[in-house]
Amino acid sequence: MTAPATTTPRGTAAMTATDDAPAISLTDVHKVFPASGGQSVAALERIGLDVRPGAFVSLLGPSGCGKSTLLRIIADLTAPTTGTVTVGGRSAREARLARDYGLVFQQAGLLDWRTVRRNVELPLQVGGVSRAERKAQAETMLDLVRLGDVADRFPWQLSGGMQQRVAIARALACRPQLLLMDEPLGALDEMTREYLQGELLRIWRDTGTTVVFVTHSVSEAVFLSTDIVIMSPRPGRITRRIEVGLPQPRTVEDRTSPAYFETVTEVRKALHAVMAEEPA
């Protein structure tokens, strides 16, 4: 997979889709955090996960079960204790160095001293893209998240939801094939949250990127995902993987459909089973 980062999003999606290689592949990943008191914390155990290109996969589980750790391992921000990780056919480290993925956290993490546009330009600036190209690309991404009209504002002049949309535009600036999101809507109010869920689905369809999405909200996971991966409490293991059969493209009506509630119930049951289980 050597497509240059400048191909159109649709184009890259089509190319990856024909590619049989998974977008992400984790084999037998363990993560142990050495703790100060000599007692170490087993955060992840025997994680095996394949994500097909173009999928929207949610990692769902109680807090502290290692969702963030798993995402950070995929992002090569922390190394697994044992096991192998490939992202887009390369090692996680190579993928990071090639800026193959975009990252969004619960906090927007925008730079206060830069305008919205210049915040979106940041990944391109670090990547050595020329000034003119940077600006054009940032404007495209701001249009994608429908924030073209606030490009010259500063982050602190925006609402939390708008800041998070800027963070998404920034993550997409290099047109990555993979978007990693750690509870990106977790800090927002219910209304904004539902609106942005719809926006996120639209962006996912428009760009064709693979998404790995961390959440602890069942309804959010069901509405957004093609696949839901359920994790057990510490040490985090993948206990189930549920395919969401809701039709695409999804709309607000799907939130009230019987199929939606069926899936929500199925996921809830799976979560309860996991919570009742004694840790090994």
Partner: peptide, 15 residues
């Protein structure tokens, strides 16, 4: 968070 972001962007220390 900013340092992590820069690290995810494979930024050099200079950046």
């Amino acid at each position: 968070l900013h340092l992590e972001l820069m690290s995810a962007l494979a930024a050099r220390p200079r950046h």
